[in-house]
Design a binder for these strands. Structure first.
Length: 449
RNA sequence: GGGUAGGUAGCCAAGUGGCCAACGGCAACAGACUGUAAAUCUGUCCUCUUCGGAGUUCGAUGGUUCGAAUCCAUCCCUGCCCA
């Protein structure tokens, strides 16, 4: 158990493994197929890719100023595309973001203000830039695009004459995302109805201006994507291709990427790497088997070996550890990954050990779980409920009280069994730390300053 | 514009004068069991509480009544049908 606990030494350097796995241009579809990353695919796509370097794109909606792990799959598709020798375009939806995608939504969306949109756009763009290779000396250098650039100057009349004329309302209404809303209880505004056309035009624009003949995306985008290929066919007689990846689900049917703390974001500010790492480490066995193929670049034999090993010895959690290692170092870099592991080991490795056995260095080096608390307050003595509420560990006194009553809070690894517990200086570790545990998996290190 | 069905807690959804802080389900959180897993069982799940209660809720505003989520009026919003 202890030996296996340090995944860092368990396998080779992850980036090395990425590199020795460069499928050929034609092999992209095969590669993605065994990974379970293909849901729908347009006939002829594989043959088209085999002909040579193809430019493909995926659109990202700026609904927040950071992408979350739901966007990770599309990002990975682009990375795979580039690894296979094709050219990826990451499109940010400056224009489509203003309209709102009805796909998968049962209700009309609220429009984002323009300021917020601009802010989000900048954040999303910055993140996307991290994951692809934009080096212009590469023949298949990645590119960034913003559909606002071509929609900004377009007039409404131009849109309905030059684009709208090519697609019938019948065609648009037949799309699942539209049909559901037409049949449902909430209706659909004209704005959202036009969304697929707006997105469809993106594809057409990229097709004519950037020679982009492939669109990818989540399977919820299939309807929007095919409107694009249809538009290309009708307006310019060309042929474009597309495939989608399945939406990531959890075995228990819950929403992927959500925890009690909310969304798991890709930005370290919104989700510290430690928590990011923990999210993957906590994957259930069933999920881990699926996810490791999708979220890592490990090759098929490696993954199969891992799965076999895991089935024989599930309590070793090799699968989760490898998954968490690969994806954390991909998103946050190896340094952050190592810190996350170090913190994890200190917190979880030997839980029966007294909190006092942790050295000051151990505590200080814990990343992603620290909270500061004013020394004066503690000097006077604070009751546990107030303390939990003031540190923000629990949102209110009421909730703090309930959780303590339910036995869900520990201080310095000792369960709090009384609401009357008064915290004062005497309880601090090394004179300045307090280890607070909420539930089994949520740790906070309160540092008194 | 006319007709009609609706608007209940994070979501779905009961309730149609007092027994309603509001059945039930989902989601969520915690406890037990475990492998920081799943399944299962238990508890919590509007806010505050000295755990006795207290305060604010059922689209909005007024009204009827000892008493309203439930009745009436007006308004707002949504679906569907007709024009």
């Amino acid at each position: 158990m202890q030996k296996d606990n340090s995944p860092a030494q368990q396998d080779k350097n992850p980036t090395q493994e990425y590199n020795n796995l460069i499928p050929q241009q034609a092999g992209l579809i095969k590669e993605l197929t065994w990974r379970g990353m293909i849901q729908d695919i347009m006939p002829g796509t594989e043959e088209h890719l085999a002909k040579g370097m193809t430019t493909g794109y995926i659109g990202f909606d700026p609904t927040a100023d950071s992408l979350h792990i739901g966007s990770l799959v599309p990002i990975l598709l682009l990375v795979h595309l580039q690894k296979a020798g094709h050219k990826p375009i990451a499109l940010v939806g400056g224009a489509t973001g203003m309209v709102g995608d009805p796909s998968g939504k049962s209700e009309e969306r609220n429009l984002l203000s323009e300021d917020l949109l601009a802010h989000n756009l900048a954040g999303v763009k910055k993140q996307l830039e991290q994951y692809l290779d934009f080096d212009p000396s590469r023949p298949n250098a990645a590119e960034m695009a913003n559909n606002y650039d071509w929609f900004r100057e377009m007039s409404f009349l131009t849109f309905i004459r030059d684009i709208g004329k090519h697609i019938t309302v019948n065609y648009m209404s037949a799309k699942d995302s539209v049909k559901k809303r037409l049949e449902g209880d909430n209706g659909m505004s004209f704005t959202e109805f036009t969304y697929q056309l707006v997105q469809g035009y993106d594809f057409y624009w990229l097709y004519t201006h950037k020679n982009c003949s492939l669109q990818m995306g989540g399977s919820d985008q299939w309807g929007n994507i095919t409107t694009g290929t249809e538009l290309i066919r009708r307006k310019s007689g060309g042929t474009a291709f597309a495939f989608t990846c399945p939406l990531i689900t959890k075995a228990d049917g819950g929403k992927f990427g959500k925890t009690e703390k909310g969304n798991i974001w890709l930005s370290a500010e919104k989700t510290p790497p430690f928590q990011f790492y923990q999210f993957w480490l906590n994957a259930t066995d069933a999920d881990a088997e699926k996810w490791i193929r999708i979220f890592t670049f490990l090759d098929q034999p490696t993954i199969e070996t891992l799965i076999t090993r895991h089935r024989e010895q599930p309590e070793g959690r090799h699968l989760q550890k490898t998954l968490a290692r690969e994806i954390t170092s991909f998103v946050h870099g190896e340094e952050e990954y190592k810190k996350a592991v170090a913190t994890t080991e200190k917190i979880f490795a030997d839980q029966s050990a007294a909190a006092e056995s942790l050295t000051e260095q151990d505590l200080e080096s814990m990343e992603g779980v620290k909270i500061d608390y004013a020394a004066e307050k503690l000097a006077a003595g604070t009751d546990i409920v107030t303390f939990l509420a003031e540190t923000g560990i629990l949102p209110s006194k009421g909730e703090a009280r309930k959780l303590v009553q339910g036995g869900g809070v520990s201080i310095n690894r000792k369960k709090v069994d009384s609401l009357q517990l008064i915290l004062d200086k005497g309880i601090l570790l090394h004179g300045k730390y307090l280890m607070v545990q909420k539930g089994k998996r949520n740790f906070y290190l309160v540092r008194v300053i």
